[in-house]
């Protein structure tokens, strides 16, 4: 399993793997928003938590179809399915690799984009914390969506249609945590609910994703 993780990380980081694209996309999104809503900090500040989370969501979405598609094309997914490790483990490792290559750079870069969008300094720790807690759920749910749509032509569009509604609870609690701490309130409840969703998703969704993969590999 460690070997699989290493292989995925190497594949993602070498040339053509698309590493860093998500951060670049996030940067573009965050710099486009002020053009859309206006540069005044009074307008930017209230929408900043939402924009940052929606940006993170969309950046995650960009690289989702790569989770299984490449392995499906060259047949290594069939090998993994017959490998001695359970398919649920493969899904979890793939999601972890996606999280490490896509979400972790986002989390590191997020405070920078928070500054761009006039997010108050007091909310910065909460921005990083909510992203760190919430993005694992995004990666695992994305792996489920990728598993369902793997072998489909034009699966990419369908993938976003299937996965984005599943992101709604995470999005709500993530932005709510940031907004509450930006307004000086208690963000603990939202953060705990976010953590609860992430934990439940991490525990249960790999099984659904593995079931979908088995159906698609049949």
């Amino acid at each position: 399993m460690i070997a699989l993780l290493k292989r995925d990380l190497v594949l993602a980081t070498r040339a053509g793997g698309g590493f860093g694209l998500a951060v670049a996309f996030f940067l573009i999104l965050c710099s486009l928003v002020p053009f859309g809503v206006g540069p005044q900090s009074a307008t930017l500040r209230p929408v900043a938590p939402g924009i940052l989370w929606v940006g993170a969501l969309l950046s995650c979405l960009l690289s989702l179809d790569r989770i299984f598609a490449l392995d499906h094309e060259d047949g290594s997914l069939d090998l993994l399915a017959t490998a001695p490790i359970p398919l649920e483990g493969v899904v979890a490792i793939k999601a972890l690799a996606h999280w490490l290559t896509t979400a972790v750079p986002l989390i590191i870069a997020a405070p920078l984009f928070g500054v761009l969008l006039q997010l108050p300094a007091a909310a910065m720790p909460m921005l990083v914390a909510s992203l760190a807690i919430g993005t694992p759920a995004l990666s695992v749910l994305g792996a489920f969506g990728a598993a369902v749509t793997v072998g489909l032509r034009r699966g990419g569009l369908l993938l976003s249609l299937l996965v984005l509604p599943l992101y709604i609870p995470t999005l709500i609690f993530g932005t709510e945590a940031i907004r509450r701490s930006a307004e000086g309130g208690q963000a603990g409840v939202a953060l705990m609910l976010l953590a609860g969703i992430s934990a439940a998703v991490l525990a249960l969704v790999p099984f659904a994703a593995a079931a979908a993969l088995r159906i698609n590999l049949r």
Binding site: F144, L162, P165, L166, P169, E176, V205, A208, A211, N216
Partner: peptide, 22 residues
């Protein structure tokens, strides 16, 4: 696949219902 999606979707539709209340 749609059966699995329906299962997962049901959980998340319910979850969204309460998340939206929050």
């Amino acid at each position: 696949l749609t059966g699995v999606l329906c299962l997962v979707g049901s959980v998340f539709a319910l979850l969204s219902r309460y998340a939206v209340l929050f």
